[in-house]
């Protein structure tokens, strides 16, 4: 259970959202609010760092999809970094791997986001 999700705004205009633990219906509102804040402050893109997340359900995927759409409406990038092996499998099973930008690590996500802007 999380009350507020850490958000870091980098100098390069990328905002990193770092949820932790198991994400489900009980954490959906906090995640939605975290994404909203990150999108409002980011000028290049938002990366959701999932390296400390060990469970995601369909409600969470829905919130992430909503965040991705809002980022797109603002004209900034959106990516998911380091999803767990199990979550990546589910994302692939429901064919969201062609919808989300998935990166194996945070550094890779940052590098790709910055290079796509050059």
């Amino acid at each position: 259970m999380i009350e507020r999700i850490p958000i870091e705004l980098r100098d390069d205009g990328i905002a990193i959202v770092s949820p932790k633990g198991e994400l489900d219906l009980s954490t959906a509102e906090a995640l939605r609010e975290g994404l909203r804040k990150a999108i409002s402050v980011a000028s290049v893109g938002v990366i959701v760092d999932l390296s400390r997340v060990n469970f995601m359900d369909s409600v969470t995927l829905g919130v992430l999809l909503g965040g991705m759409k809002k980022a797109k409406d603002k004209g900034i990038e959106f990516a998911l970094a380091s999803p767990s092996e199990h979550d990546r499998r589910v994302i692939s099973m429901v064919r969201l791997d062609s919808v989300f930008k998935l990166c194996d690590g945070l550094e890779e996500a940052i590098e790709q986001m910055l290079s796509s802007r050059r």
Partner: peptide, 9 residues
Amino acid sequence: LGIMIMRAL
């Protein structure tokens, strides 16, 4: 999506 995940897993 939830039902789809149940059926997939």
